[in-house]
Design a protein around this nucleic acid. Structure first.
Lengths: 198, 198
DNA sequence: CGAATTATGTACCGATCGGTATAAAAAAAT
DNA sequence: ATTTTTTTATACCGATCGGTACATAATTCG
């Protein structure tokens, strides 16, 4: 009951996500948000709590709609395919023609004032979580003799995430998808397509 | 003539550089700066012009004092040593015990409001310049048959810069130097220590 | 039809933003 | 000693920041 909402919450959240993605948490003002979302401040606060709550919901949406390739990639039977799908998935997302370049999880609050410290901490933890999940997957691969010799699972995981974070900066600096793909090709060169399957 | 300055310009600039490095251009307020540098706003504006001018001078100092390894690395006779020195040089700078983690050129203004667009553009151009210089060096290496087969100089340059930018994010996320070194070891694995010297 | 409930638009809040006007203070020049 | 020059400290500027009080509009329930 009560007056019906005049805007679509999902559409509004999509817009907020893109704004935070492009301009970062602190670089996006409430005026940017309300004008972009086509709603007033009281509406924004009524639905999303405050700016911080809105960002967290936007991040959640980002993970759900743009980072879904990550968990899909973990299901690949071979570790090398996991790595490659993750790398190309990130590069694709970072260079999509619609939407901002780079990565919300990095652009959001890499370096910021104390006012955004909580968001920054949250994004760092977010990155660590992804790295941990990949590390777990590579631990399984190690048990299956599915890793290249001489490498620890967590080192490989950090390596893959480092490349992906690097391409995020490259994309934010104007690099296009083919360029990132060539970087990925080189990054995977040391990893034989088929590992000693004895 | 005139009243003598009561603070050391170089010390003040060093402090400003560290603040911008840790909190980014927009995340660092004039209050942060004046309190950190131990001077008042009129003094700051008298010497450095304005916030933007101060940032650019801080960036200049950063390049001169923290990125000097880069041009040194370009002088290495073998391309692989160039690559390795650059990668380890970045990792060292990004994980120095004194001073902020990560890279000023990335932390400074990766994603920001329109108010900082000029600084952002300047930092992007800064990254491109480094990539171009490395590319030039690798072109020379190509002529000297000093590159691994099947790779273009500019692709190798972008690859090296992508890894370094990735480690910058890793450092900003808490990774320590040994962890970054292991990433670098993996990144260079495809590059044989001695290339076909026929 | 009220009454209750929820969303909206307007207008405002204190705090902080980058930047500056003004005058006192400290030196060199005459 | 006075003038000139430069730096300092204080106090302030308009604009914008994130956030909210309040009244009105639009719906459902009784």
């Amino acid at each position: 009951m009560g007056r019906p909402r005049e805007f679509d919450v999902d559409d509004a959240l999509e817009t907020a996500m893109e704004l935070f993605w492009r301009k970062g948490y602190e670089g996006t003002s409430l005026t940017d948000l309300t004008e972009g979302m086509g709603i007033t401040k009281p509406s924004l606060y009524g639905v999303f709590g405050n700016k911080e709550g809105l960002f967290l919901k936007a991040l959640e949406r980002y993970e759900r709609t743009k980072m879904n390739f990550f968990h899909e990639a973990l299901k690949e039977p071979k570790a090398r395919d996991v790595a490659e799908k993750i790398l190309r998935g990130f590069a694709d997302s970072q260079t999509a023609e619609t939407g901002p370049s780079g990565c919300l999880g990095i652009n959001g609050a890499l370096a910021c004032s104390e006012a955004a410290a909580e968001i920054q901490k949250c994004l760092i933890e977010n990155r660590h979580r992804g790295e941990r999940e990949l590390s777990k997957r590579f631990e399984r691969a190690a048990e299956e003799s599915d890793l290249p010799a001489g490498h620890e699972p967590y080192d490989l995981a950090r390596y893959i995430m480092t490349i992906s974070q690097g391409t995020a900066i490259q994309a934010a600096s104007g690099a296009d998808r083919p360029a990132l793909y060539r970087v990925i090709d080189m990054a995977l060169q040391f990893w034989p397509e088929t590992v000693a399957q004895n």
